[in-house]
Amino acid sequence: MSTPVTVIGGYLGAGKTTLINTLLRQADGHRLAVLVNEFGALSIDEDLILAQEGDVISIAGGCICCTFGDNLVGAFTDLLSLSPPPDHLIIEASGVAIPSSIAATLSLVQGVTLHGTVVLLDAETVQKRARDTYIGDTITRQIETADLLLATKADLVDDGHLDILRDWLGTLTARAALLPVRHGAVPNEVVLGLPARPDTLSVRALEDHGALYSSLTLYQTAPADPHALIRAFEDSHFGTLRAKGHFRNAAQQVMELQGTGVRLTLTPASRDPVALAIVFIGLKAELDKDGITKALSPLNFHPKT
């Protein structure tokens, strides 16, 4: 059983603390483990804290938060040996770290599966910061290598500003999906990836944020080549923020798919799924359902009839 892990990065002031507190509040029984570079830099809302002992803060609902200082891999080993182990690991990268580098390292750690790198940027100030002599290139590198970009404080700027921001981000990266976040509201399923549980296809994001998000579920009718699936998403993510599902390959193996923007990760499924299907979620205004359906049709995925 592999534990999903999401790397959350972005420069100081981009809203990482707010986001992580939101994720903890919305954990809904999921045991999240948050690894932070240092306490204090991430202040967990006091009402969430049950206890603090040394480097570990216990949080309501079975979540924990611990510091890793300069030894991420060591902290990982400790967390995965907990009983019961956390359902999902969240790494809060330091403001100057390149989250994709951390993600690359995670690919070497046994027992975890990457659910994408999420980079936060302050919609108001990121372009100015990106021109800074010292940290400008760090910020653009964070953006260039992200899977999913969250433009925070989007409620503080007008639509014209967002368009300019979107164009500018487009010059840096074609691969990352962009999600404007208003008033800090964002579903866990989008930030962390859809739950790794094979027994559900329901998307809570849509229940809580129905007005904003939309989803598409496609069912597999015959085995498909996984590489063709990845190729279908190579050039465009069709407005997909997240994808999750199971399918059968030509060798009759059941594979699990996780998608963040254009990043699709395939791993052999650990359990039999309830259905061979993939769920795609995105913003209502952006999710290109027809595009996805058309692209996956030759791969034997179809909407339920």
Binding site: Y11, S94, G95, V96, Y134, D137, T138
Partner: peptide, 11 residues
């Protein structure tokens, strides 16, 4: 390419 910062200027 240029190297890495290990601390943010603000810190």
């Amino acid at each position: 390419p240029n190297g890495l910062w290990y601390i943010a200027p603000e810190q």
